[in-house]
Design a protein around this nucleic acid. Structure first.
Lengths: 183, 183
DNA sequence: GGTGGTTGTGCAACTAGTTGCATAAGCGCT
DNA sequence: AGCGCTTATGCAACTAGTTGCACAACCACC
């Protein structure tokens, strides 16, 4: 139940329309909470009826007309409440690890290519994060917000670093396994 | 769509009843693919009607009676197909990172305790994995299956290591931030 | 011989997220 | 005036996962 809170955060950072939000979910926020435009529009509707956000008055609401939303005090309060509330980590689900475990019983045929492809994807993502770090977080330590945002980015960088290293090792191991069908 | 394949993998490792599978999903497999017993029973039913698994003949099927399932050749073939097929990594979703980002706009009040709690949980999980590694994977490198399974376990260990380090840092940063309500 | 806990199976309703498609306005171009 | 492209909003149906509960058999034990 975190999508509404992701949207509130994004709108507090900057009031936006549904489409602008969608674009922002394709970068920054989307790096750790992705959402499609359909989800976002649906949720904006809910948040509005709940009184957490409202459309900025200047615009009218004909279909196909841009609507800009801003967060109301109740929305900010709800976000603060949610941020402070204890939450259990939700159980992991990782398809790639599952596939490797399956490969241990049905063989690794066909797996290596996809491992390489994933490795490449993670390398790219890592490079993107490092670029953002270089651009937005020079080493001098800024305001508290920046320190927190930098911390989040560091998590992204370290996670991608882990995956590139682990995948490199996985590719190597799979490559030197007896080629086929052993079960 | 990976739950059926997780179940096929588990059943190939060892034919089991629904409840036994549930227990196994609470450990080993569940470390990277969790499922409740309801999901598992539902999926076992589907897999059986699709002809991927069958109940072992010895048992009868009255309600409340144990049913042991085994994988049929079609099931093994399906698992091999799925393992080899390319799959895109699915977008990340991490509530904790989202909360930190939210904290950057609504303040970090109340967050530190929960960060500490998560740190402790990850430390425990890391210790559990390390214990498994010590017990099941002595350094001499065994059969290919074992090498793959060890690789999967290493991913778990390295991920938990990452989280403990990152959370320790996050706790430290949040602790030394101006105490409240900024912006 | 009944009561209470454990083992085992399962349905129903709900929540969250995805996919596919529809609709409308505005813009440029010919 | 009409055609196609982009921007923008949104509904409907589907899939996956979660929560809550029900029910049957078995076993111990008093």
């Amino acid at each position: 139940m975190s999508l509404p809170h992701a949207i509130l955060t994004a709108l507090l950072e900057k009031p936006s329309s549904g489409l602008e939000l969608t674009r922002r979910f394709d970068k920054s926020i989307g790096y750790f909470w992705s959402a499609t435009h359909q989800q976002i529009y649906r949720e904006l509707g809910k948040l509005e009826t709940e009184g957490f956000i409202r459309t900025l008055p200047a615009e009218q609401s004909a279909r196909g007309q841009k609507k800009n939303y801003e967060v109301l005090p109740a929305g900010r309060a709800e976000l603060a409440r949610w941020t402070a509330a204890a939450q259990d980590p939700k159980p992991q689900r990782d398809v790639l690890l599952l596939r490797l475990r399956a490969a241990a019983v049905v063989g690794t045929a066909g797996l290596e290519d996809d491992l390489r492809r994933h490795l490449e994807l993670h390398r790219r993502q890592l490079a993107k994060y490092q670029e953002i770090e270089r651009r937005d977080f020079p080493p001098d330590r800024g305001a508290p917000q920046d320190r927190l945002r930098h911390l989040v980015l560091r998590a992204g960088i370290d996670l991608e670093t882990f995956w590139t290293q682990w995948l490199a090792r996985a590719v190597a191991e799979v490559a030197e396994l007896p080629t086929e069908g052993r079960d």
